[in-house]
């Protein structure tokens, strides 16, 4: 055996004299990890501080209660609003109105986007044909369709459902596409050698494996739908939480405004949590992303 001699320049020159590591403090106190309990305590403390500061600001009239009502009054308003009508509906009625439109637009988006995305992900040709159109329309925010939707469908539920649909259909489609095309081609090959045909592979391997991503797409779509609905309700509605928020702002009812914002936020978080749960339930095998 011949000994190998390096063909490169040989030894690497030392660029800097070696400095020994610092002795003092391996990890600064700020950088140390926290236990779950510490995290919880700090979180509660910080939230409480925030509410206290808010209370002090409006109680001392440092900020006008007209602009920022004290937290207790917001809570009180919330309680009354549950049963008392504002702009023709109780809080429950407005929430139901918003949720109906969101459900409609989101489901329609799924009805179109899910199969379309799966098809785009599965077939090169469909992807080449449809995806450029998508790319062309994507930069136009769904909201910018609102004026056109009003021209086409008038000020009413159909216009809002249409705009919500537009905002939901994009993530439905894009994520379904990504879900399907990110399935390892090796699995498809393996299924083929095990005797599976195209239809069987699509159903039993591709869609099955892609389920967590498909559910994630549904979750993003619902988030978009909710966001867009609020905007649509600011523009053209006679009920709904966005409609309440805008009217409250115009009549300087800041307590009602904050209540509606709070409900909008809580519902958004709730939708997200529910679909995360769905994802875990339908795909227990998936590692949490």
């Amino acid at each position: 055996m011949t000994t190998e001699t390096s063909t490169s320049t040989g030894r690497v020159p030392l660029q800097r004299p070696y400095r020994p590591p610092r002795k003092r403090g391996t990890t600064s106190i700020w950088r140390r990890g926290l236990s779950g309990r510490a995290t919880f305590v700090i979180g509660v403390a910080s939230s409480a501080t925030l509410v206290a500061v808010w209370h002090l600001l409006s109680a001392t009239a440092l900020v006008s209660p007209l602009l920022l009502p004290p937290p207790l009054r917001v809570a009180e308003t919330f309680w009354q609003f549950l049963t008392a009508e504002y702009l023709g509906e109780t809080l429950v009625g407005h929430t139901a109105a918003s949720m109906t439109i969101v459900a409609g637009g989101w489901l329609l988006g799924g009805l179109v986007g899910l199969p379309l995305g799966i098809l785009i992900g599965w077939s090169d040709r469909v992807r080449w044909l449809v995806f450029p159109l998508f790319q062309l329309l994507r930069p136009v925010p769904p909201l910018a369709w609102i004026p056109l939707a009003i021209v086409w469908l008038g000020i009413g539920d159909p216009a809002r459902i249409f705009v919500v649909f537009l905002s939901a259909v994009v993530p439905w489609t894009i994520n379904s596409m990504a879900a399907v095309s990110s399935v390892d081609p090796l699995l498809i090959r393996a299924a083929r050698t095990l005797g599976a045909g195209d239809g069987s592979i699509l159903r039993r391997v591709v869609i099955h494996t892609a389920t967590p991503t498909l559910v994630a797409g549904a979750r993003i779509a619902l988030g978009n739908a909710w966001t867009t609905l609020i905007a649509a309700e600011l523009l053209a509605a006679s009920a709904g939480l966005g409609f309440v928020a805008l009217n409250a702002s115009q009549t300087l009812s800041s307590d009602i405004l904050l209540v509606s914002m709070g409900i909008i936020g809580v519902l958004g978080a709730l939708f997200s949590a529910i679909l995360r749960g769905v994802g875990r339930a339908v795909a227990p095998w998936a590692k949490e992303a």
Binding site: D184, L187, R189, A190, H208, W285, A286
Partner: peptide, 13 residues
């Protein structure tokens, strides 16, 4: 039948 280097097991099954 093929046995692949990267196993190619169906992760959802």
């Amino acid at each position: 039948s093929v046995v692949f280097q990267r196993f190619a097991l169906f992760p959802s099954r």
